[in-house]
Amino acid sequence: MRFHTRKWIKPQDLNPNGTLFGGRVLEWIDEECALYSIIQLENPKTVTKYMSEINFQNSAKKGDIIEIGIEVLKFGTTSIQLRCEVRNKMTRSSIISIEKIIMVTLDENGKPKPHGKTKVEFVKDRLNDKS
């Protein structure tokens, strides 16, 4: 799994218990998966279709640094299936994991659109291919 993004837990990210608000971390996961999928599938019209059970394992508190990791499980015709884990950067303890997230590419009419991708591609390789 590759960990792409780090977040510093600030007061506005906390729930009334003084720990990381679940809704905030889900917002960050959804955004990270969307950005990752848009880049992989080369389509800015990519949306979240499905998230499996969400498993909160540990919490984070103000001042903690967390990181968001994404792993590609498979490519569908119009979709990409991901796994996500958020962990504490310093302790490596898992905060939340989602075993299955499906992102779908859409056409200009909002209908699923085939993307033609079959494997993970890195932007640096795409740029080298087009030179």
Score class of each variant (00 low, 15 high):
105 T>H: 04
103 M>K: 12
91 T>G: 05
58 N>L: 00
87 R>L: 07
20 L>R: 03
61 K>Y: 08
6 R>G: 11
44 P>R: 10
104 V>C: 06
35 L>E: 04
25 V>M: 05
111 K>L: 14
119 K>G: 07
111 K>E: 14
12 Q>I: 09
31 E>K: 10
129 D>S: 12
38 I>A: 06
96 I>G: 01
31 E>R: 11
123 V>K: 02
81 Q>L: 12
29 I>Q: 02
4 H>V: 02
70 I>A: 07
89 K>N: 12
94 S>T: 15
73 L>H: 10
86 V>K: 11
54 I>Y: 12
127 L>I: 11
17 N>I: 11
129 D>F: 09
74 K>R: 15
118 T>W: 04
88 N>A: 09
60 A>P: 10
118 T>D: 07
34 A>N: 06
103 M>Y: 11
88 N>P: 04
45 K>S: 15
33 C>N: 03
32 E>A: 15
91 T>D: 02
81 Q>C: 13
63 G>D: 08
98 I>M: 07
13 D>L: 00
73 L>K: 15
63 G>M: 04
42 E>R: 14
98 I>A: 09
95 I>G: 04
31 E>M: 10
3 F>I: 06
27 E>Q: 11
70 I>S: 04
26 L>E: 01
82 L>I: 10
74 K>E: 15
80 I>M: 03
107 D>G: 13
74 K>T: 12
76 G>F: 01
39 I>D: 14
130 K>P: 00
116 G>V: 01
77 T>N: 15
42 E>T: 09
7 K>G: 00
51 M>T: 00
130 K>A: 10
21 F>H: 05
117 K>W: 11
97 S>T: 15
81 Q>Y: 14
7 K>D: 00
57 Q>Y: 09
55 N>R: 14
81 Q>K: 13
45 K>L: 15
75 F>H: 10
14 L>W: 01
16 P>S: 03
118 T>A: 05
49 K>T: 10
66 I>M: 00
125 D>M: 04
37 S>M: 08
100 K>Y: 00
96 I>A: 02
6 R>M: 09
54 I>C: 10
28 W>E: 08
98 I>E: 08
3 F>Y: 14
50 Y>T: 11
86 V>H: 09
14 L>R: 02
49 K>N: 12
68 I>W: 08
62 K>E: 15
44 P>Q: 08
77 T>G: 12
104 V>R: 08
28 W>H: 00
125 D>R: 07
122 F>I: 09
117 K>E: 12
22 G>R: 04
37 S>E: 07
40 Q>G: 07
130 K>F: 08
36 Y>W: 05
65 I>M: 13
12 Q>H: 13
74 K>A: 13
113 K>Y: 12
65 I>S: 10
74 K>C: 11
92 R>H: 13
